[in-house]
Nucleic acid binder design. Structure first.
Length: 129
DNA sequence: CTTCTTACA
DNA sequence: TGTAAGGA
């Protein structure tokens, strides 16, 4: 499929798909006319990359993570470079921090919403059936 | 009409 | 990232 179809199926802007290619993630083969040709299985990859970027993970880290995610679950190569493992640990911790941050803000918003709902409830009480 | 590259905001 | 230009 060409870039337009992948964009629809993965709900990712063509602009982003070209950017992913520029960053070395998802490098499609080219047709004779120069158009990008993507394999169907890349739909999931595009969704995953978009998700990681939306989550604040830099593309250079995503490039390091994708190969790991491709490997079958539970199977880890014997030659793990301590260098990569260190970076992965740091990234995991950053993700945890972002999650904690979002959790706190979500809870704050939830409290506000509950208060607003309560106020609305009081205001409309009796005016309905 | 779809895609391509380059470039600006 | 969105958008525009200028081609194929």
């Amino acid at each position: 499929m060409r870039i337009g179809e992948l964009a629809k199926l993965s709900n990712t802007p063509t602009r982003s798909l070209r950017y992913y290619e520029e960053q070395g993630l998802i490098v499609p083969r080219r047709l004779d006319n120069g158009y990008r040709e993507y394999d169907p299985h890349l739909i999931d990859r595009a969704v995953q990359i978009r998700g990681l970027i939306d989550s604040g993970v830099p593309t250079r880290i995503i490039a390091l993570i994708l190969p790991c995610l491709d490997k079958p679950r539970g199977i880890v190569p014997e030659d793990i470079e301590p260098e990569l493992l260190t970076i992965l640990r740091q990234e995991r911790d950053k993700m945890s921090h972002r999650i904690d941050f979002l959790t706190r803000n979500r809870d704050s918003i939830a409290v506000y919403i509950d208060a607003a709902d309560a106020a609305l409830e009081r205001r409309t009480a009796g005016s309905a059936a």
